[in-house]
């Protein structure tokens, strides 16, 4: 019995030491991201930039790699706009961005388009990027959130902010709760409802994932546009990945489709 008590006492003391160490260390809780509604009416550029900074260290999880540990460019201290301009003129640059905003968006949405020298995956000789695509899970940022980050990155070094404040109700990913689908009343609503602006440059979007639509009326006829929506895989624009969702038309009403087609055929350059 004596040895039992001694053994128990010894073991409990040792366990206590470990517990003590755990409780003396800095206590951090990993918060799950909470969905927040952004009141667009009250949004100013200042608060939009602040939102971007919040997302940068919060939901975007950017600071996990973009810090001074050497894993990714330290965006917090770099002049991001200057670097973006330098990198777009690098001979290795094969992406499709034409301005700083486009470069920053491309870096987030399609990080593999260009890998800054020295930051590629081990053994890939800077051809593969270790950065995840922010539109995909687990990060799953929305277009508005990406815009906010771009605004933050531009503003923090005193550079010009080129993104515009969002005016549409953003389509938030995994919004919980049942929502009765509303039939869109205009082509702009259709574009927002089906998240076209996520990949196509149209209205305020400068997205480069899919072909730009700002003068699609010059290139495609109404029937061709209609086919692209109903059966995206039928014709793939050269140089673009065949990733347009095939199910868009399934949920679209005929009215919405026609509004969209009519609108896009009118998108022509002067």
């Amino acid at each position: 019995m004596g040895s039992l008590l001694k053994v128990l006492g010894f073991s409990l003391s040792l366990i206590l030491v470990f517990t003590l160490v755990a409780n003396l260390l800095p206590q951090l809780e990993g918060e799950a991201p909470v969905e927040e509604e952004i009141n667009l009416g009250e949004l100013t550029m200042g608060s939009f930039v602040a939102l971007g900074e919040q997302i940068f260290s919060g939901k975007g999880t950017c600071t996990l790699c973009h810090n001074n540990m050497g894993r990714a460019p330290d965006l917090r201290v770099d002049n991001v706009v200057e670097n973006a301009q330098k990198r777009m003129s690098d001979e290795r640059y094969q992406g499709k961005a034409i301005d700083v905003e486009g470069y920053l968006r491309e870096s987030m949405v399609e990080p593999g388009a260009y890998v800054v020298a020295g930051f590629g995956k081990k053994g890939s000789n800077d051809s593969e990027s270790p950065m995840p695509k922010v539109l995909n899970p687990p990060i799953q940022l929305t277009e508005v959130e990406i815009d906010a980050i771009i605004a933050f990155l531009q503003a923090k070094d005193g550079n010009e902010v080129t993104v515009e404040l969002p005016t549409d109700t953003p389509v938030m990913a995994d919004k919980t709760g049942v929502e009765a689908p509303q039939v869109a009343q205009s082509a702009e609503e259709v574009l927002a409802k089906y998240s076209c602006t996520a990949c196509h440059a149209v209205m305020e979007s400068g997205a480069t994932v899919g072909p730009g639509l700002k003068n699609v009326g010059n290139r495609l006829s109404a029937n061709e546009i209609r086919q692209s929506v109903v059966d995206p895989a039928a014709v793939i624009a050269e140089g673009f990945p065949p990733i347009m969702p095939p199910t868009i038309a399934e949920n679209m009403t005929v009215k919405e489709l026609e509004m969209l087609v009519r609108y896009l055929t009118q998108q022509k350059s002067e």
């Binding site: 938030m172 919004k175 689908p181 998240s195 969702p245 949920n251």
Partner: peptide
């Protein structure tokens, strides 16, 4: 898989 991972996050009509 590539097709599906590259699509947009789910539309606003998502339910439980």
């Amino acid at each position: 898989a590539e097709q599906l991972t590259a699509t947009q996050p789910v539309q606003a009509t998502a339910t439980k």
